[in-house]
Design a protein around this nucleic acid. Structure first.
Lengths: 147, 147
DNA sequence: ACTTATATTATAACGATTATAATGTAAGAA
DNA sequence: TTCTTACATTATAATCGTTATAATATAAGT
């Protein structure tokens, strides 16, 4: 099934005239198999064994290409680097304020909110993003938290 | 009414042992009266007439202080700087993908989603964040969009 | 295999944010 | 009120994520 995802992604890129390079193939493959919403640097480090000469710019460039193609979403949070999420079916994110862990969860789309927002603001709606913040079980069991 | 907000904010800071400096007073006042979700630099530039010697680090430091005190929220988006929002009653944000404009809108809290997420993930929920992305009316009327 | 537009690499540059060290000051105590 | 000192501010340097640049390499159509 992730083979299908990969094939579909590659086809989607080809159809818009984006060349398939070994690096692009590997980055997509890594993202599809990843469950951790990796940063650009995560991807870079995971692939440097296979591509010792790959530049970090290649990772950023291609994440941007994939984002423009609608294949990945970029998630930004307060502190550090962006995280990237291969787009599958819609889901939301539960984020631990302590350790930064991100867990997916599913919920019916919030169409009603979108409609109201559109009506009130006059915007044409594209999509929405919902994140729930809290503390994960691992962090709740930890003794104290240093600031 | 914003006088009350300012007074409450100052009291909240005092109660946790944070000193009230003219800079802090001015930053809070600016944020309360602002409707534009300013960046740190927006604030810095707005106040440099009144405080010609103020450092941009002071703005960042104090936004962090206010954030820790729960007085402001930091909003991060893909591209550029964080924006800061004085916390009043709960509201959500409608964001224009074209010009970056942010408009507030109100909607009943999504308690049901929070409960489900907590149940599914085992997280203890603190709060959530919902953003709707689209195109504002001004940008819809613009001729074309350069990439 | 040839061609060429596009991709990659290596590196420099950039911009937002944070750290540092010196100086200044808010606010409680005398 | 003045004194004291811990905390704030300033000025500047450093850091870190990301992007731009220019040279080299290569995907993919001919």
């Amino acid at each position: 099934m992730s083979d299908v995802q990969l094939k579909d992604a590659l086809d989607a890129l080809k159809s818009i005239g984006v060349r398939i390079t070994p690096q692009r193939h590997a980055i997509l493959e890594y993202m599809i198999h990843s469950t951790t919403h990796p940063t650009a640097d995560d991807i870079y480090r995971a692939l440097e064994k296979t591509f010792p000469n790959m530049s970090v710019a290649t990772v950023y460039n291609n994440l941007r290409v994939f984002r423009k193609a609608g294949l990945v979403k970029e998630l930004t949070y307060g502190d550090s680097s962006s995280r990237f999420d291969f787009v599958t079916h819609d889901h939301y994110h539960m984020i631990c304020n302590d350790c930064g862990k991100i867990v997916d969860f599913h919920y019916p789309g919030l169409d009603e909110v979108e409609h109201l927002a559109s009506h009130v603001t006059g915007f044409q709606v594209d999509y929405h993003r919902l994140e729930i913040y809290g503390t994960c079980q691992d962090c709740m069991e930890k003794p104290a938290k240093a600031q």
